[in-house]
Amino acid sequence: MSISCRIGLLRLADSAPVLVARSMGFFDRHGLDVEPVIVPSWANIADGLVWNGLDGAVMFPPLAIMTALGQRGRPVALRPGLPVSRGGNMIVLRGQAEAQAQWQSGRDKHTAFTNWAQSLGRKPRLGVVHLYSTHYLILTRFLQDHAICRDTETEIVIMPPSSMIQALATGEIDGFCAGPPWGADACLKNLAFVVAGSAQVMPGHLEKILTLRDQWASENPDGAARLYAAVRDAAALCNQPAHAAEITKLLSAPLNAEGLDLPYEALKRIMPGTPDAPDAMLFDTQPRSTRSSCGWMIEDMQREGWLTPTQLGTLSQLGWYND
């Protein structure tokens, strides 16, 4: 009998390995019956893991960590699981060619940002996908690098990645940091220009992981190994430019046709191996040391005041941290 598993996903291009594994029959081959559950926002991923709606999820480490620690109600044992992707998020700001040219010509980015902010006539409202996200931490570092104070000089607005385009178009936000392909989509729609890819701010940073509830893993003794094997195979396939066209088609298919309903042209610009695309996705399931994977995030999270020393102990037991 095959092992069933409900994996939570958002409408993001870096969810691709799970969808590819399903459509190519990798899960079947490993004796798994995986149900990808596409949810509208990150809160739904966290709540699903806590309140028994999901067995695992493709998500970023900070939210997995805060969920594991009980920040969404009760603690739920989650471990670092399988790395899935690196980089791929984009920081974009409102404006067209002229604003972009100004940004690029200015050598001093602090002045460039201040000039851009002044042109808005209000404190810039910047969207991030969740408070406990790599995006929030990366945007914070980007602003710090340019000597901009996040808390006094910008206003942070939380919304799911798939809402960013609409919010930019209606003027609810003036820029955002979000996962693929939404940054590329904003540029294609002439709503915004790129100021940094997340890989420029934090080179090679771990982005998505596949995490599983300990409870599911203990109920299905070799389930995790099988699931990781299937997703590893799918991730390797996603990295091959020869498969890019096929995967782009899959991701842009409607939700009821096993796709993610993502914008096709934007996807084409960020598929792994796309030439002249510094912000293209990169799938990488190779495990690294705990410190090099999540070390910087945990340091930043401590600086934000999200973690107490006792919680660090719990995190080290779950394999997120070692000192």
């Binding site: 509208p40 809160a43 739904n44 939380i158 919304m159 799911p160 798939s162 809402s163």
Partner: peptide, 9 residues
């Protein structure tokens, strides 16, 4: 399923 509930968190 309301996507804007994340903002409340």
């Amino acid at each position: 399923s309301r996507a804007d509930r994340d903002a409340l968190d």
